[in-house]
Amino acid sequence: MFRVQMEFLLPNILVFLAIALVTSQAALSPEQYWNFVLPNTPMPKAVKDPLQPDFVDEKSTSVGVGKGGVNVNTGKGKPGGTSVNVGNGGANVNTGHKGKPVYVGVNPKYGRFKYFYAATENQLHDDPNVALFFLEKDMYPSKTMNLNFAESPNKATFLSRQTANSIPFSSDKLPEIYNRFSVKQGSMEAEIIKNTIRECEEPGIKGEVKYCATSLESMIDFSTSVLGKNVQVVSTEAENQNQLQKYTITDGTKKMAGDKSVVCHKQNYAYAVFYCHATQTTRAYMVSLAGADGSKAQAVAVCHTDTSAWNPKHLAFQVLKVKPGTVPVCHFLPQDHVVWVPN
Results as ranks from 00 to 15, higher is better:
25 Q>S: 05
25 Q>F: 03
26 A>T: 12
26 A>I: 05
26 A>Y: 08
27 A>M: 09
27 A>G: 11
28 L>E: 12
30 P>W: 04
32 Q>K: 11
32 Q>P: 00
33 Y>K: 06
34 W>E: 03
36 F>S: 09
37 V>D: 07
39 P>G: 03
40 N>D: 10
40 N>G: 05
41 T>I: 05
41 T>P: 02
41 T>Y: 04
42 P>W: 02
43 M>V: 15
43 M>I: 06
44 P>W: 07
45 K>A: 13
45 K>R: 06
51 L>N: 01
52 Q>W: 15
52 Q>L: 15
53 P>W: 00
53 P>A: 07
57 D>I: 09
58 E>Q: 14
60 S>A: 10
61 T>C: 07
63 V>Y: 01
64 G>W: 06
65 V>G: 03
65 V>E: 02
68 G>P: 04
70 V>A: 09
72 V>Y: 02
74 T>C: 13
77 G>S: 01
77 G>L: 03
81 G>M: 05
81 G>H: 09
81 G>N: 13
82 T>D: 15
84 V>N: 05
84 V>I: 13
84 V>F: 14
86 V>E: 02
86 V>S: 11
87 G>S: 11
89 G>P: 11
89 G>W: 03
91 A>G: 07
92 N>L: 10
93 V>N: 05
94 N>K: 12
96 G>F: 12
99 G>M: 02
99 G>Y: 00
102 V>E: 00
102 V>S: 09
104 V>L: 11
105 G>D: 07
106 V>L: 14
109 K>M: 09
109 K>N: 13
111 G>W: 01
113 F>P: 01
114 K>L: 15
115 Y>S: 10
117 Y>V: 14
118 A>G: 04
118 A>M: 08
120 T>S: 10
120 T>L: 00
121 E>T: 13
122 N>A: 15
123 Q>H: 10
125 H>L: 13
126 D>F: 06
126 D>P: 02
127 D>G: 07
